[in-house]
């Protein structure tokens, strides 16, 4: 049963990624990316990371991709504004051939790990309680640094979007 769920989610993740890379219109690519991200959220749930499953759906599918879709619709892109990509298929084929050794290297490196059952753990692994304990005990300084990063990103976005004499 778990195998069937895993294969379905993996198929949707790869199909979403493939559609994102090959679609011409940005809006179709963004919708394919949502499929891929939701499938990855399901894989996180399969790995008993229940809190990260919710974070992935709320932050990625709910905030980041919605912002991306909003910007794509806001810009009102016409056909003549899209770049001409005549050699797209050729570059995709050459790139995938070049990337085969990279994938073989990664798979060979990880295949030396001893195999171990990755079933669903029942003892609260990945729950919000465990997560918060580790986050606020071991990772407090990175957590505070992330808040500074988010604040500076907010200020940067406001500075870019401001109307002044350089970008009217």
């Amino acid at each position: 049963m778990i195998d069937i769920i895993f294969l379905t989610l993996a198929f949707f993740a790869l199909a979403g990624g493939y559609g994102m890379v090959t679609c011409k219109q940005p809006i179709h690519s963004a919708l394919s990316l949502i499929v891929s991200i939701l499938a990855l959220a399901g894989l996180f749930a399969l790995l008993s990371a229940s809190f990260l499953f919710m974070v992935q759906i709320i932050v990625y599918a709910g905030a980041i991709i919605t912002l991306l879709l909003f910007i794509i619709m806001f810009l009102n892109i016409k056909e003549e504004n899209l770049p001409k990509e005549d050699d797209k298929t050729k570059l995709l084929i050459i790139g995938s051939i070049v990337l085969i050794p990279f994938n073989i290297l990664i798979i060979k490196a990880f295949s030396t790990l001893p195999s171990k059952s990755l079933g669903i753990k029942e003892d609260g692994f990945g729950s919000i309680k465990d997560f918060g304990e580790v986050l606020f005990n071991n990772w407090l300084i990175p957590f505070e640094l992330i808040s500074i990063l988010l604040l500076s990103a907010l200020v940067g976005a406001v500075v870019y979007a401001r109307k002044d004499k350089y970008n009217g």
Binding site: I2, I5, F6, L47, F110, S111, L118
Partner: peptide, 8 residues
């Protein structure tokens, strides 16, 4: 299959 790390 889903039990092995290699699939992921």
């Amino acid at each position: 299959m889903a039990d092995s790390i290699l699939a992921y």
